[in-house]
Design a protein around this nucleic acid. Structure first.
Length: 279
DNA sequence: CAAGAATCCTGTCAGC
DNA sequence: TGCTGACAGGATTCTT
């Protein structure tokens, strides 16, 4: 379920285990995920020292010495697993394995293979084709009500779809869009251009709070962002509307005219919302 | 050009 | 228990 908070938490987990370490061994176990791995990926990783990490939208950037960064996207089903180095067989759907000089083994597992790995020059990371068109980071101070308003002004698409568009704001996915719209009291069906203005002023702080709270939940529930089973980054998080079709929302306790949380399809994806409090 | 649909792939789960 | 179909948190690419 990698949206911004999960990717952030996975990135922090990788940082806690890999930053400053030397990769003594790297192996790919197929030639591609969503796209072909870049030529020489394993060779470039082998012997490299991991300098630092950062996240951009739902991408993780791992900077190596020598001026190369590894660009990682977890897709829909991507996970990072870490554990003591061992000689066992490759786990199912593990496509990339790294081993560090202090005895850890990191595996990138992605059954659905919508994830990706690429190399990019550290000095020009943001010029990579996958990053170049991204909008402002959802948690960056450059993402404001006025900046959001400006990008929604002419959009007739539903606000739900607009917020999923990474060119409008980077990092949100289906779950947190639903959650943020609920908190802001805005209908996911509302035309995006009608959110420009005062409604955007209500929405932006809720987007940020939703994401910040989710990241905090990950940070507080996981030691070094690593689960006991070695999986990085994921955590239990209670959603207010996502996945709660038919349940009473927290704003309508005992309100008879509230039909409960609805589920509709928008652009082929499920949207959850309260028809009474979200307008 | 904007917006919606199709698409990549496998696992899981509900229903029969 | 086993089969089938729907669906899944993404984002690019293709069509309209």
């Amino acid at each position: 379920m990698p949206e911004l908070p999960e990717v952030e938490t996975v990135m922090r987990g990788l940082r806690s285990k890999l930053q400053g370490r030397v990769i003594v061994r790297a192996q790919t176990h197929r030639e591609n995920m969503r796209w072909a791995f870049p030529p020489g990926l394993a060779a470039r990783l082998t012997g490299a020292r991991v300098e630092s990490f950062r996240r951009r939208a739902k991408y993780i950037l791992m900077r190596l010495d020598g001026g190369t960064s590894v660009l990682i996207h977890l897709g829909m089903s991507g996970r990072m697993n870490i554990g003591p180095r061992h000689p066992n067989a490759i786990p199912a759907h593990e496509h990339l394995t790294l081993e560090t000089d202090d005895g850890w083994r990191v595996g990138f597992v992605d059954p659905r293979r919508f994830g990706s790995v690429d190399l990019v020059a550290t000095a020009s990371e943001d010029a990579h084709r996958l990053l170049a068109g991204l909008g402002p980071e959802a948690l960056d101070e450059a993402f404001t009500a006025s900046s959001l308003s400006a990008s929604l002004t002419d959009k007739r698409t539903p606000i739900k779809a607009a917020l999923l568009d990474q060119r409008v704001v980077a990092g949100l996915g289906n779950i947190y869009v639903c959650e943020a719209l609920f908190r802001a009291g805005l209908s996911p069906r509302r035309s995006a251009r009608t959110v420009a203005g005062s409604r955007a002023a209500r929405l932006v702080p809720e987007i940020k709070a939703t994401l910040t709270e989710a990241i905090a939940a990950g940070g507080s529930s996981l030691r070094d962002y690593v689960q006991p089973d070695g999986e990085l980054g994921y955590f239990q998080h209670a959603f207010k509307v996502y996945g709660r079709e038919g349940q009473q929302c927290e704003r309508c306790p005992g309100v008879p005219e509230c039909a409960g949380i609805r589920r509709i399809a928008q652009g082929g994806r499920s949207t959850f919302y309260c028809g009474k409090t979200q307008r």
